[in-house]
């Protein structure tokens, strides 16, 4: 991850999240664009006020990021936030977009013109979504959702590249098997072929890991495992 785009709205959550990630040596070397977008306003006065406020939001964000200031580029832009975020990410060939999300369901997101939903659908770049109501914690437990797909393999590789240089971090390799019942499989995690293969690779790289297996619907299963294990960052392919 060499280029990170942080879309800031003034609440400070994405900045906090970045600072947790910044403990990862690989992230410290990244260049960071901090973007604030001012949506169209009805009057010139309103626009001027919003731009001024935006400048302050950017200045505060730059101050709060724990990274060498020479690596930060602040950008204040006008327009429709969902288009601008996607556009800037493409322009700068961003490797990771960090942005907030309200945790709306798909329908609510469409009705409410959700920026993160739109960027998720239109951009093919990795995204780190920080929901309004989550508590951003120091990263000690990272979970990666595994299955047989290439997408899961990619996310596993990304997880490995993040945790390799980190001390005191545990990588949870998680799989939910749709055909199984949770209590049938939970004690057999190490024997699962998908997890066993990933575990072998993690072991070779000296990464501290644990395997967790469950059954049932993958979505709720993954969320439940993440909550049970008190996970600080969940990685999954999409």
């Amino acid at each position: 991850i060499r280029k990170i785009l942080i879309s800031v709205a003034g609440r400070g959550l994405c900045e906090e999240m970045f600072n947790m990630l910044a403990e990862i040596p690989a992230i410290q070397q990244a260049s960071v664009t901090v973007l604030h977008v001012v949506p169209p306003q009805v009057t010139a006065e309103a626009m001027s006020a919003k731009l001024e406020e935006g400048g302050k939001i950017l200045a505060d964000a730059v101050k709060s990021l724990k990274v060498d200031p020479s690596r930060i580029t602040p950008r204040l832009k006008q327009g429709d936030p969902k288009n601008i975020v996607t556009q800037v990410a493409d322009e700068e060939e961003t490797d990771l977009i960090i942005m907030g999300s309200r945790g709306l369901t798909r329908l609510e997101a469409i009705l409410e013109n959700s920026v993160s939903q739109y960027v998720f659908q239109l951009s093919s770049r990795p995204m780190l979504l920080v929901k309004d109501d989550v508590y951003v914690k120091q990263i000690r437990r990272i979970m990666v959702a595994m299955d047989k797909s290439d997408a899961a393999q990619n996310s596993f590789e990304l997880a490995l590249s993040l945790v390799r240089d980190m001390k005191n971090v545990q990588l949870y390799l998680a799989r939910v098997i749709p055909e199984a019942k949770p209590d049938q499989v939970m004690s057999n995690a190490e024997a699962d072929p998908v997890l066993a293969e990933a575990a072998a690779k993690a072991k070779r790289l000296g990464v501290s890991y644990r395997c967790v297996l469950s059954g049932g619907k993958p979505g709720p299963g993954i969320c439940e495992l993440a909550e049970d294990k008190n996970i600080d960052l969940l990685i999954l392919g999409s």
Partner: peptide, 18 residues
């Protein structure tokens, strides 16, 4: 999809790799 569900419901920050 799985990523749709998880990014809405998960109780922690979610990194979607592509």
């Amino acid at each position: 999809s799985l990523s749709d569900y998880v990014r809405v419901k998960a109780n922690c920050p979610v990194l979607l790799s592509r």
